[in-house]
Write a protein that binds this DNA or RNA. Structure first.
Lengths: 343, 343
DNA sequence: ATACAAATTGATTGCGCTAACATTCCTGGC
DNA sequence: GCCAGGAATGTTAGCGCAATCAATTTGTAT
């Protein structure tokens, strides 16, 4: 219970209370404080209380940087999405974080945009934090990215896409299948002359590919493709649909996102085209405003909350495993054509 | 250039390449590798190249956990917002991250919801990561939160609100002023009997308070208030507006978010009320769908991108300072009444 | 009481890196 | 040739914590 004989603070110290300060106040060894805070079941009731009091008295805030270094566990999960300025990905971020927080994991967010180069850069800095797990949007990565992920040996969930060859775990859906389903839906409605407005984004492109392949398979329909930059927006949708409608006679326009479709809808209304009578319109994502537009937008619903939740669950399960055991689960979450009033 | 005499890897080591491994391969001291990677201008051209080669050869990925511990610089910024499932905050997250990434800062995201208790809990775990800076939504914090933030001595920007007594830096706008401006706008339109639909969120409530105080000051108008839970949604807006319209004769409904206003709009349309003739509607936020609804929603525009950008700039400036010098800047970013077709 | 296991606490060591200081290597002016 | 002064590199000593194993205390069955 004496209070001297401690090392003077080195000039490199941060100045705030450390584990040893709490230990001194509580009259126990530093290791006992560590246990009282991290594995309280290993410590007796009385000791636990004394440590708690000492923590309050000293204003101690654990330093998880040091803890992570000593234990090789960062309690950090990296979450890499293209953007959060898109309700679909925002929903994923929200649910992933909601599922991880109660288990004591914090989230290091990375916005990788839509190019493999950005992903590569960001992944490197992310790995330097030694996350305990990674959630990564998409399955198409550069060779370097794949190699880094493999050698990092970190539990990993790829989301929002589908492949036969996942790096580890996978929770998503097939973009080609979405495209095919949309094509079949519109063909069944009698549409034949299609405009496609697609973002410059590999997954949007694969949906377009799926759409076209379904047309070919059906032996029916012709299409015109327009590409727009990211981020997608109503003005893009309006501009490209104006171009398409000026140059071609179309009976349906398929968009790679709801926001583009809203732009198309505005253009159609400004031309006095009846929707869906003269022009059918399909969006993608079932954003909150899809149901609110007039007429209500037909679209493709993706259950982002389910993707986020399942991804988090898979990751938690894997991270709880003592060693690294490949389990490589794949989960196809599917999608749903929402047939509202624009098709 | 020999290659033995190194310590054998302890059983606690992670197994991946370390700085010392790179140093051995490059034939230099570990400290030189550290410098070559972090302060390349201090190292000769030849050494830098040899180190780069050695990094590639060993597949070295720096361990910033150890780096942060040794240098007391985490290169981490904590970003605390209520949610990302709301385009306004998503925009802030997007711009803050966009501004910080080029400077080498990564973002630790925290979703604090709308209660001071959640903020308190999350802040504690956030501080344990020793971030170099914090961006925090709102100015109303619990006493414990304020105390922790003060003693942590971390550069801090509060955003999305206004106060005379910021903890450090502040970039936001006055919610009371928004409420007053909305009231004046609607009074000028001739509205007198108001319904307010407000989320259970302290900032939304302060907008309502501002609204009511403007009515009182004008000596005109009466109002009915309904509160909804979070997250706000169209169904909430529809339900509460139905309740209001059943029980009262109203000529305007003011909502604490665009999404609620969309629900009100749907309810008005289902009752055959002309908007804004029989019922004026105001939203808040100018979400992307506000302009797309029919009729286009009148609302209050907040420049989330400007808030995020300025917050990041202030933080970067402060973090670049050698010591901690209080500067305590406050920036009122304002707002704009967007007068579309529902008022 | 005694022996033995289980529960609890403590001492030592090192995670991988960088701050701070020490040393060596140049370069050029005299 | 010699030395001042800067550039480049090296050495030492932690940062604050938890893994590991050792020591001690407590409980339990005989």
């Amino acid at each position: 219970m004496d209070d001297s004989d401690d090392k003077p603070r080195s000039s490199r110290s941060t100045g705030s209370a450390r584990l040893t300060d709490v230990a001194r106040v509580a009259g126990v060894a530093p290791m006992t404080v560590s246990r009282a805070l991290n594995r309280p079941e290993l410590v007796s009731e009385g000791t636990r209380l004394r440590v708690q009091r000492a923590v309050l008295e000293t204003g101690y805030v654990p330093n998880r940087v040091a803890g992570a270094l000593a234990s090789s566990r960062s309690r950090l999960v990296a979450l890499l999405v293209p953007t959060v300025a898109h309700s679909l990905f925002a929903e994923v971020v929200q649910t992933v974080m909601g599922a991880l927080a109660p288990q004591g994991y914090q989230v290091l967010l990375g916005l990788v945009g839509y190019t493999p180069e950005q992903e590569e850069t960001i992944l490197e800095t992310v790995l330097s934090r030694r996350p305990d797990g990674i959630v990564l949007t998409g399955c198409r990565h550069s060779a370097l990215t794949r190699q880094r992920l493999k050698s990092a040996q970190v539990p990993l969930v790829e989301i929002w896409d589908m492949t036969d060859d996942p790096l580890d775990m996978l929770v998503g859906f097939s973009h080609e299948a979405v495209g095919r389903a949309v094509a079949e839906h519109l063909l069944a409605r009698g549409c034949r002359r299609f405009g496609l407005i697609s973002a410059d984004d590999s997954r949007a492109k694969r949906r377009a590919v799926g759409f076209v392949s379904a047309l070919e398979q059906a032996g029916a329909g012709e299409y015109q493709l327009r590409e727009v930059g990211t981020p997608s927006s109503m003005p893009w949708g309006r501009e490209k649909s104006a171009e398409l409608l000026d140059q071609h006679s179309l009976d349906a326009i398929v968009c790679s996102s709801d926001i583009l479709a809203l732009g198309v809808l505005a253009e159609a209304q400004s031309r006095g085209l009846s929707v869906p009578g003269q022009l059918a319109i399909m969006g993608f994502g079932d954003s909150s405003y899809a149901a609110a537009s007039f007429p209500a937008l037909s679209t493709v619903r993706i259950d982002g909350a389910a993707i986020g939740l399942r991804a988090a669950e898979h990751l938690l399960q894997r991270m709880a495993l003592p060693a690294f055991q490949r389990a490589g689960q794949t989960l196809d979450i599917g999608f749903e054509i929402i047939d509202r009033d624009t098709t």
